[in-house]
């Protein structure tokens, strides 16, 4: 294999250190005025692309493209990817802000990705296995279906030899190793790698890297939601325990509770 062009997904999500709150309409998680960051699994995807280039060399990995679909502010997340080391960013602008109305469903995202992939012609797409806001874990699989490419999901190890991709996957019972031909879709699991920090010189360089913008209309993709969210609720609050004074009291409480 002589050329590898990698596309990585970079979703803007609520920062994972922020405690999510259900909005007053109980239809989604509150997103307005909440700190947003790059989806941690996508950060792992960017890191993996960078590591592949470090391993295989610049003459094999020609370009790493970061792609996001989201509001204008999603460019912050693209800048993060560029500062980590991606070469170019593509932004499909959807909506004006982080409000719930602008949330894209996985099928729309997969279609937008397909449109960009047709333009950019990458032969490896690395996505987070899921985004930590809706936890859908569908985009990678849907994209593989739309493109009719092989998929290797929940990767904890990725190797490339010529045009053969070998991926170790995390499954319930342990690890599974599969191989397939490129082009292919990989989705990242948590233990794949530990992402690097954006260094100052790279942050400065990132400002000069190209960022291309599209709209769903320009790409001829219909992003109308296909699913309706009926309601979103918070988990029940854990009730605190009580202290007992004596063994007798403990036993009587246990009996009361029918244990």
């Amino acid at each position: 294999m002589s050329n590898l062009k990698i596309l990585v997904g970079c979703k803007r999500v609520i920062d994972f250190a922020v405690k999510p709150r259900v909005n007053s309409a109980k239809k989604a998680v509150e997103t307005a005025n909440v700190k947003h960051s790059l989806n941690p699994f996508d950060e792992i995807a960017v890191e993996e692309a960078l590591r592949l280039r470090e391993k295989l060399g610049n003459n094999i990995v020609k370009e790493i493209i970061a792609l996001t679909c989201g509001p204008p502010k999603a460019q912050e997340q693209l800048r993060t990817a560029l500062a980590m080391g991606a070469d170019k960013a593509v932004h499909v602008e959807v909506g004006k802000d982080d409000s719930e109305a602008n949330i894209l469903q996985p099928l729309s995202v997969a279609k937008l990705f397909r449109a960009i992939i047709e333009k950019e012609q990458p032969n490896l797409v690395i996505l987070g296995k899921q985004a930590i806001d809706d936890d859908a874990s569908q985009t990678g699989q849907m994209l593989a279906g739309l493109l009719n490419w092989p998929q290797a999901t929940f990767a904890s190890k990725v190797d490339i030899n010529d045009d053969k991709l070998t991926v170790t996957r995390e499954v319930d019972g342990g690890l599974e190793t599969i191989s397939c031909k490129l082009p292919a879709i990989v989705t990242t699991d948590l233990r794949l790698n530990e992402p690097r920090f954006a260094t100052l010189p790279n942050i400065m360089k990132a400002k000069k890297k190209p960022l291309v913008k599209y709209t769903p209309d320009q790409l001829n993709v219909d992003i109308t939601p296909r699913l309706e969210i009926i309601s979103v609720t918070e988990p029940p609050v854990r009730k605190g325990g009580t202290k007992v004074e004596s063994v007798e009291e403990l036993i009587s409480k246990l009996k009361q509770a029918g244990l």
Binding site: F16, L38, T80, L200, M204
Partner: peptide
């Protein structure tokens, strides 16, 4: 912060550095 860091780099006060991209990195 950008301006500050740029000035440090151009004046060679600082050789290298990292900036947190999210709350986890801040921690």
């Amino acid at each position: 912060l950008q301006n500050f860091l740029e000035e440090l780099l151009t004046n060679e006060i600082v050789k290298d550095g990292v900036v947190a991209q999210d709350d986890t990195q801040i921690a």
